[in-house]
């Protein structure tokens, strides 16, 4: 029996909208994941440090402040710099469709825009973050 998937649900920047992050955290927990929630107002450095320290399989980043084009690439870059590029970075929030492709190109594994069913996020986590558990 493999160990449970470990996910860091993260809020970065100054954004205080934590409704989505909390709903996802609970849903992933109910789906059998171990979930760590960073709390609000983390810097990208703090998010990556927590991810490495907690040895998570994925980071789910929630951004509703419009700062997604800054925060996602920065966190991805820090993961690479710290040799932790195998941690799957995904996320969501108020992200316009046209910003999704540049984020994917920057190494974000998946971007979930408003209205995405939670089941789709759980499927993604099991499939992509689950690879790391199996390895």
């Amino acid at each position: 029996m493999a160990r449970p998937i470990r996910i860091l649900v993260a809020k970065a920047g100054l954004d205080g909208h934590d409704r989505g992050a909390k709903v996802i955290a609970r849903a992933l927990r109910d789906a059998g994941c171990e979930v760590i929630y960073t709390g609000l107002h983390q810097t990208p450095e703090q998010v990556v440090e927590a991810a490495i320290q907690e040895d998570v399989d994925g980071i789910g980043l929630s951004v509703l402040s419009g700062a997604h084009m800054t925060l996602f690439p920065r966190i991805k870059q820090l993961l690479v710099e710290n040799g932790a590029q195998d941690i799957v970075l995904f996320g969501g929030g108020t992200i316009p469709a046209e910003d999704v492709k540049p984020l994917l190109d920057a190494g974000v594994a998946a971007v979930f825009t408003p209205g995405t069913p939670i089941a789709a996020i759980i499927d993604f986590v099991r499939r992509e973050c689950g690879k790391r558990v199996g390895a």
Partner: peptide
């Protein structure tokens, strides 16, 4: 935070 504070990066004038 003032607009030129490091924590303001990427958030200025957004919301």
């Amino acid at each position: 935070y003032d607009s030129d504070h490091p924590r303001a990066l990427g958030e200025v004038g957004k919301c």
